[in-house]
Every structure is written in C-alpha cells, then in structure tokens.
Nucleic acid binder design. Structure first.
Length: 256
DNA sequence: ATGGTCGATAGTCGA
C-alpha cells in the first residue's frame, strides 16, 4: 500500500501531472492540497476514469483539499473541531482499516504576523483533533503540506532560515507536539541522504540551485510505523514544464 | 540589484 501527498498549487493547471503520477506511481491514497477550486469544479469523472474515487473540500481561489483513493471512502469529515474557519484545509476519510487525514496547514506569512498567529492557533486545534482521532483509529496517517520544516536537516541553509516562518521555534514545537501524541515522521523512520526537500520557491531558480525545504510530511501512528517499508520524495514532477512548487511525497506499507 | 515567480484574478493578494 502506498499513501502519498502533493500540494499541486492549482489542480486546473496540474491535472495532467497528477493523472500521469497516478499512472506511474499507483498510490492507493493521494492527498492533494491547494486545489484552488470549488468542490463543484473538481474533475471527479476524470479521476474516476483512471480508477480513483475522490472526496473534496474545495474553495474558490485559495486552499482546497481532496483525497483520491483506489477504495471507496467512508466516514468523510471536513472540519477541524473547535476552530470555526471558512478556509478549506482539512479532509479525512476511512479506507478499510486505514484512517487518512489530509491537511493544508496555514503558511503563516511571517513570524509575528496575524497569519502566523492563526497558524499557531490552527496547529493547537489540530493537536486536540488528532488526539481524539488516534483513540478512534489506531491505523492513522496524517499527511499534507505542513508548512513546517521539522528540523535543520530539512532546510538547505539553516542559518538563512533561522527563526523564519516555516522554521521558527514555536512552529517546530507544535509539530513536535503532534509527534508526542504517538505519531512519527515516516521519512525519518529510515536512513536518508542529506538535502532531501519537497518544496522549492519559484523565485531565484531555487530548484535548480537545490534551495529547498522538506515541509510535506506523512505522520504515521505506531501501528502503521511498524508496517512502513519506505518513505521518500519524488522530485520528478518538479522538473516538468509548469510544475507545482511542491513535489509529491509518499510512504509504502507492507501488506499483511 | 534588498528583488526574483507563480496562480487566480482583474488590482493586488497569497505563497
């Protein structure tokens, strides 16, 4: 079983990239972020035609998340309990014994800004939500664009990024708080090469210059961590024409 | 050179 996550930065622009990636990598579940379209505009039939179910929490212009899956979804939920929010950033569904939560964590703009405070509050509400979900669903994967680089290994130039948004202490502490619930960063279950990233700014030729951050993550519960056999970033799609600024990330699990 | 480039949208905002 393969579970994957990809911030596509507009599904309208990236639909062909996603369809090709589904054909190449055959994930069982793929969480999409920043689809930037209303739910009604989501190309459900196009993904159905290539063998995927879809559930969508869409929004015009900004945000918007979806889950594509080989198996039909059950128990779909679209909210972060305790955080009234018109921004569409969460979608969760159950596939057999697997519970998948797909997130587009707020970017935060800059440390100290109003958007940064919203990000921290959002992460506090997320922790309370995940604590409850872990009780209900032992086999839980929490995937998405976390907009947080967990530590300096996930940053091309840690000194440049020190205390900046995506790398600041309060953000990293909140991510560590999620892990303290009993989740693990699937990528770090394995020995990894240095300088593996999942996002590169469109500006300043950051991808060519390998100036990236690893901010797209799959967090797995302990039951799933035991079955996880690999986790990585596929930077192939970042090399395509008109790419998303994010590459897909994935984790593989052995079948029992 | 204190910016740069995208996407959605129609002047800027968000990333």
């Amino acid at each position: 079983m393969r579970v994957a996550s990809w911030n596509v930065n507009s599904l309208r622009v990236r639909q062909e990239h996603v369809t090709q990636w589904l054909a190449d990598q055959a994930p069982d579940v793929l969480g999409l972020q920043e689809i930037k379209m209303p739910t009604a505009d989501f190309p459900v039939e196009a993904f159905q035609a290539v063998g995927y179910h879809a559930v969508v929490n869409g929004q015009k212009t900004y945000n918007g998340v979806a889950l594509l899956s080989r198996h039909p979804p059950e128990d779909v939920s679209l909210d972060l309990p305790g955080l009234p929010d018109s921004q569409k950033r969460v979608i969760a569904a159950t596939y057999g014994e697997l519970r998948a939560i797909n997130l587009y964590v707020p970017n935060g703009q800059s440390v100290g800004s109003e958007k940064y405070e919203y990000k921290l509050s959002w992460l506090d509400a997320l922790k309370a939500y995940l604590e409850e979900e872990l009780i209900r669903y032992p086999r839980l994967v929490v995937m998405g664009d976390f907009n947080i680089a967990p530590d300096d290994r996930d940053v091309h130039d840690p000194e440049t990024w020190r205390d900046k948004v995506l790398c600041s202490g309060p953000e990293r502490e909140r991510l560590a708080g999620l892990l303290s619930l009993g989740l693990q960063d699937s990528f770090r279950l394995f020995e990894q090469p240095k300088a593996v990233f999942s996002w590169w700014d469109y500006r300043a030729a950051a991808f060519r210059r390998k100036m990236g951050l690893r901010i797209d993550l799959l967090l797995v519960s302990s039951a799933l961590a035991k079955e996880c056999s690999a986790s990585n970033v596929d930077i192939g799609p970042r090399r395509l024409e008109r790419p998303s600024d994010h590459a897909p990330v994935y984790a593989d699990f052995s079948e029992d």
